[in-house]
Nucleic acid binder design. Structure first.
Length: 152
DNA sequence: GCCAACGTTGGC
DNA sequence: GCCAACGTTGGC
């Protein structure tokens, strides 16, 4: 039995919130249009745990946990002309974007806000507290994750 | 709403 | 391959 890896994925609650995921149970994490973020998804394994982070809201912070249950899924929105994530440069025989499927685990009783995260961790311990970091998918160090799991 | 910090695009 | 211009993210 191998240890899971830990990640953090951001979503604006107006676009897709922890409550929406709680209701859906399972969702495709599609619409990722950044190569670094995509490459992190490609490193994921089934069973990995993902901290759900609400961004661009008051306050931003970690609001719950999910689990990776499926890998390497072609992102359907890249071929959907009506989607805001439509990518005319991506061809069906060579898709540019893929995604993972995640499952709802739990919602935190209260948000672990960015100001609190900045008190608990420095930017080496938790990348999301780094100023100017805009990546929507980030790895989380194992030792950091263990502490986080006790706090959410 | 402002703006710093990035990532991407495209001319050269 | 450089880099200016532009677009986006996201905290504040």
């Amino acid at each position: 039995m191998t240890e899971p890896n830990y990640w953090l994925m951001k979503s604006e609650p107006d676009a897709y919130s922890i409550d929406t995921l709680k209701n859906d149970g399972v969702t495709l994490w599609d619409g990722i249009r950044n190569y670094q973020a995509r490459n992190f998804m490609r490193k994921m394994n089934k069973g990995d745990k993902v901290f759900f982070y609400h961004s661009n809201c008051k306050p931003p912070g970690i609001v719950g946990l999910m689990e990776v249950i499926d890998l390497n899924i072609v992102d359907p929105t890249q071929f959907d002309q009506d989607s805001k994530y439509f990518d005319p440069k991506s061809k069906p025989d060579n898709p540019r974007w893929d995604c993972v499927k995640v499952e709802y685990k739990f919602k935190s009783d209260k948000i672990l806000s960015l100001p609190e995260l900045k008190i608990l961790f420095n930017e080496d311990e938790l990348l999301v507290v780094k100023k100017g970091n805009r990546l929507s998918i980030l790895p989380v160090r194992n030792d950091t994750a263990k502490i986080l799991l006790e706090k959410i």
